[in-house]
């Protein structure tokens, strides 16, 4: 979506004297834009003002905090990988195939965005739980999903998948199928076309989709606490640790929240820098 907006705005782009690129943005738009920015930023600033800085470092480097952060990073990375493996083919099917019921399918993919995460957790429980739809089959296979790190990754993948699929599908539609068709006419097999032509073309969309998925997985709380439980080192991710700390030590909860925000911002920032470099490289296919 953002990709399309950038393309459309490009012809009107002009560089103002003060160095601000105002790509045909009407003046009035700045007011709600700034208000929107404040709505997001002010609560974060308010949170930062509540941090007890003298004990901040001790709070965020405590054993339970480090364990929770490590678990969060590990599970969010695994979930992002799962989202890529499952989501890229899903986006391809949605963007390039034509069949009855495609519209319904597309709205179904969005369901995890609409369903409250706690409900998602209950649904996962009914699917992968011991008495769930697949629970007995899994138990026979010697797999117990409940209360395991796998359950955390499943919950995170469930809520994060739509972000990847939607971003990538938008990018695929914007890119169109012309280059794919040319590559195919030159004798490239579909998998080669996907690897060498399609995915490099939609690289920015794929990357922002992956970043969104990672960010969503990192912040995931409701489905995890409902489906996976909460045990230090196994299922207690940073958001669960924050919620638990709040019971006894609100200062620690605030400090950990800030840590989560900083980690998320760092990951997103680094990835977008990589995207700019990647975009320059992939700019002329």
């Amino acid at each position: 979506m953002s990709g399309r907006a950038t393309v459309a705005a490009r012809p009107a782009r002009r560089r103002a004297d003060d160095g601000v690129v105002a790509a045909g943005v009407p003046r009035w738009a700045f007011v709600p834009a700034v208000l929107g920015g404040l709505l997001v930023l002010l609560p974060l600033v308010a949170m930062a003002t509540r941090v007890d800085w003298s004990s901040f470092w001790a709070l965020v480097t405590s054993g339970s905090a480090r364990t929770a952060l490590a678990l969060s990073l590990r599970t969010a990375a695994a979930s992002t990988l799962a989202c890529l493996v499952l989501g890229i083919p899903m986006a391809l099917v949605l963007a390039r195939c034509r069949f009855r019921g495609l519209g319904v399918l597309r709205s179904l993919v969005l369901l995890p965005l609409v369903v409250p995460p706690v409900v998602g957790g209950i649904a996962l429980l009914y699917t992968f739980g011991r008495r769930g739809l697949l629970g007995e089959t899994l138990e026979v296979a010697g797999l117990q999903v409940a209360f395991s790190t796998t359950a955390v990754v499943l919950a995170q993948t469930f809520v994060a998948l739509p972000f990847l699929v939607v971003s990538l599908e938008g990018a695929l539609r914007t890119a169109g199928g012309r280059y794919d068709a040319v590559a195919a006419s030159l004798g490239a097999r579909p998998t080669t076309v996907l690897r060498r032509v399609t995915l490099p073309l939609v690289w920015p969309g794929l990357l922002s989709g992956a970043v969104l998925s990672f960010a969503r997985a990192l912040g995931e709380f409701g489905a995890t606490i409902t489906f996976a439980g909460s045990l230090q080192g196994t299922t207690r991710t940073l958001p669960l640790e924050i919620y638990l700390q709040r019971e006894t030590d609100p200062d620690a909860a605030v400090a950990l929240s800030l840590l989560l925000v900083v980690v998320a911002v760092a990951v997103i920032g680094l990835t977008y820098r990589a995207r700019q470099h990647g975009g320059e490289r992939g700019g002329t296919p």
């Binding site: 209360f147 606490i225 439980g229 909460s230 299922t235 207690r236 638990l244």
Partner: peptide, 8 residues
Amino acid sequence: LSPVSEEQ
């Protein structure tokens, strides 16, 4: 006890 989960 060695619980599988310590809930909120």
